[in-house]
């Protein structure tokens, strides 16, 4: 039954992504052309509130509902990894107009071509796993 919560949170997220139009290829184009505030407003307001939330979690040492520590997973220090990996993702983000969450939302919306985008993304992750030891990190 506890697992149901993740499906419900996913449904909520899918509705928010749809109603905010963040799943739209057109909105992502608008963002990368700096021609509208919409996407910056979404990410910016999520971020400002997120900073407040995470600082509050740290300051008050808040725990999860099960009493465990909140998982904040500090990122390992590196430049190459984040810059090269991030640039690869950015190239794909602007081509498809979707980041990993919206790929699923778009399939649910009936844009079945995004099943192909999803399979390619799985293949991309698999390729990363094969090449990981040879890539600069």
């Amino acid at each position: 039954m506890r697992k149901l919560i993740y499906i419900l949170l996913g449904i909520f997220f899918g509705i928010v992504m749809s109603k905010s139009e963040a799943i739209s290829w057109y909105r992502i184009q608008e963002m990368f052309r700096f021609q509208s505030f919409h996407m910056y407003g979404i990410i910016g307001s999520a971020l400002v509130l997120g900073i407040v939330l995470i600082q509050a979690i740290k300051y008050f040492n808040l725990k999860s509902f099960q009493g465990s520590d909140i998982q904040l997973n500090p990122k390992s220090p590196s430049i190459a990894r984040y810059l090269i990996g991030g640039t690869c993702f950015g190239l794909g983000w602007a081509l498809t107009g979707a980041c990993p969450g919206p790929i699923f939302v778009l399939i649910g919306q009936g844009y079945l071509a995004f099943i192909v985008v999803l399979l390619s993304a799985v293949l991309g992750t698999f390729t990363y796993g094969l090449l990981r030891d040879k890539l600069p990190h």
């Binding site: 990894r81 990996g85 794909g92 081509l95 498809t96 390619s120 993304a121 991309g124």
Partner: peptide
């Protein structure tokens, strides 16, 4: 190619 770059890039960048 777009999908591939998403899968490759997100895991590379973590």
């Amino acid at each position: 190619l777009g999908g591939f770059l998403i899968g490759f890039g997100t895991r590379y960048a973590g």
